[in-house]
Amino acid sequence: MFIRYEVAGKVATITLNRPEAANAQNAALLDELDAAWVRAADDPEVAVIVLRAEGKHFSAGHDIKGSSAPDSAAAKLTLERLYDYESRRYLEYSLRWRNIPKPSIAAVQGRCISGGLLLCWPCDLIIAAEDALFSDPVVLMGIGGVEYHGHTWELGPRKAKEILFTGRPVTAHEAEQVGMVNKVVPRDQLDTETRAWAEQIAKMPPFGLRQAKRAVNQTLDVQGFYAAIQSVFDIHHTGHGNALSISGFPVLARFDQMKEQIGR
């Protein structure tokens, strides 16, 4: 089991529980995570959902040397199969978590790399430990960013281009300054601060919370968020297609360079 699920009071806590792999995401972890989100959404006693992670890091992203993609041997992999896999586990899952009609809070510590952004960005609020670093270095693999391309919305266009072009991480305090993170706290206070926020929010009328969330998300969608996320997912796959035509499965070809860049 890669996910722990607990309910205390009106708060459901979903915990990434693969610390030995820096909570890297294989297919089983993502499927378990989606099931936990749906369980929390369907439970009438749950008012707020918290997403957190065990260990030093929130998530090192997709398990690019494990089982995070179908048949990673280049001879077996086609763009169609990769597109189908990623549209379900990366795009569809992240959009579903974003639109669950209950407030959600992500508690992020350590590294949050590439696919890790697909876990915290769908949450309504993000509380970050002072040691949190957010990055998306997949341009190193010839791809324009991760599948759920929230960069422009979360960071603004110029900061989004900066982190994509350079691959450098954004610190917790930088993320707070641009509005991607709501609050930065010492590492040893991350869980208690997140719990305090969750319990405070859980006292609000559930339907009011639901409508407030819908109002903000719907405003973003009217501004183009949903259409942009869908269209940029296709741009992401032009990167995969180019890499497949040149050198086979792109992740493995550039893994060592990417590993050096992110300091794993």
Rank of each mutant, 00 (worst) to 15 (best):
K10W: 02
T13L: 06
N23K: 05
W37D: 11
V38I: 15
V38W: 06
V38C: 12
R39M: 11
D43S: 10
A47N: 09
I49P: 08
V50D: 07
D71Q: 07
A73C: 02
A73L: 04
A74R: 08
T78S: 15
Y85F: 15
S87H: 14
Y93E: 08
N99H: 15
K102V: 00
R111Y: 01
G115P: 04
G116Y: 03
L118Y: 03
L119Q: 14
W121M: 13
I126V: 15
V138W: 04
L140P: 01
M141T: 05
I143D: 04
G144I: 08
G145Y: 02
V146C: 11
V146W: 02
E147L: 01
Y148D: 03
G150M: 11
T171M: 06
T171G: 14
M180E: 06
K183S: 06
R187P: 00
D188R: 09
E193N: 10
T194N: 10
R195H: 09
A196L: 11
A198E: 09
A198I: 07
I201H: 14
K203W: 07
P205N: 13
F207S: 06
R214L: 13
N217L: 15
T219E: 08
D221L: 14
D221Y: 12
A227F: 00
I229W: 00
Q230P: 00
H236Y: 14
H236T: 15
T238L: 14
P250W: 05
V251M: 10
L252T: 08
R254E: 03
F255Y: 09
K259Q: 11
G263M: 10
